[in-house]
């Protein structure tokens, strides 16, 4: 087998933003029938060490022969050396990833885009609202807040899923239910007999929470239909439009503001987002 010299490899990788870095799958956890949590370790030690990111950013996951897919990072930036991606088996690339085993190698490019304003959020209350797979990018933010918990005021997490089998990261949330420094409320549309949480849509949970409108940052991620209704609830609580952050899913094909697929209004989701505040999002025609 021919080996590409390390020097040549690094030089190319640094100058070519389209070139994925080989990364090894170090852990796979089955979360639901369709979602798995993958942990990756970039093989090149220098690239691995320089790989730092913000919660809310995404990577391009590459499987040669199949293609690339944009996936938001689920792990906290404080967890260095590893990247966690919560991936739904939804298309060609994610399907091929689901067929991979621990130890297999894939490609990763990134991190790309603008994440949540973590530093700005410090010193404030935080209200995080997730629907379905939208918990994936918020999980990074939640874990990051957890790591620096003393820097934040009240932290409230509202998370809605279709049914109990589709609740992601349930093992972690079950543990957190007993903590008094996170107000965590889970709800499902279609509960079964095992479910002891709330029932109904995530917007229904707003009756149960108190929000200090002058001191609270909001972060929302979920299916496209969800945003408008959650934002309505936040606005009813008098939260500022520029303190409500939303993360968008679009077809970020190149990740670097060139290919055009993720265009929304006058912006590109990949470089201008995927996290926008609501004032910006309102100004993106066709976004919400």
């Amino acid at each position: 087998m021919s080996v590409i010299p390390q020097d040549a490899y690094r030089r190319d990788a640094e100058t070519n933003p389209y070139r994925p870095w080989p990364a090894r799958i170090t852990s796979i956890i089955d979360l639901t029938e369709t979602e798995k949590l993958f942990e990756f370790r970039i093989i090149d030690p220098e690239i691995r060490e320089s790989f730092t990111f913000q919660s809310g950013q995404f990577v391009e996951l590459s499987i040669f022969g199949v293609g690339e897919a944009p996936i938001s990072i689920s792990s906290a930036p404080s967890k260095q050396g590893f990247v966690e991606l919560c991936v739904r088996c939804a298309g060609d690339v994610t399907g091929a990833l689901h067929a991979k085993q621990c130890g297999d190698v894939v490609g990763i490019r990134g991190p790309f885009g603008r994440g949540f304003p973590f530093q700005e959020m410090k010193g404030h209350d935080v209200l995080l609202v997730a629907g379905g797979l939208g918990i994936a990018p918020l999980k990074s933010l939640i874990n990051h807040i957890h790591d620096e918990r003393h820097e934040f005021g009240k932290v409230t997490i509202l998370y809605g899923a279709k049914n109990p089998a589709e609740v992601l990261f349930r093992y972690q949330f079950d543990m957190w239910k007993h903590r008094d420094d996170f107000d965590l409320i889970l709800t499902v549309d279609e509960p079964d007999e095992s479910w002891d949480g709330e029932r109904g849509l995530v917007t229904g949970l707003f009756d149960q929470i108190e929000v200090d409108p002058d001191n609270t940052y909001g972060a929302i991620c979920g299916p496209p239909v969800m945003y408008k209704y959650v934002i309505d609830e936040m606005r009813k609580k008098h939260m500022d439009v520029d303190k409500i952050y939303v993360s968008f899913e679009r077809r970020m094909k190149c990740g670097i503001g060139k290919c055009g697929h993720c265009g929304v209004g006058h912006q590109y989701t990949c470089v201008d987002g995927p996290v926008f505040n609501y004032w910006e999002a309102m100004n993106l025609q066709g976004a919400i």
């Binding site: 739904r88 939804a90 994610t94 496209p224 679009r250 077809r251 697929h261 929304v264 066709g286």
Partner: peptide, 16 residues
Amino acid sequence: CQFKEFAAVAHGQNFR
């Protein structure tokens, strides 16, 4: 951007 699939994402949602 005039092609139908241009702004479609994996699980069926098409933004344009």
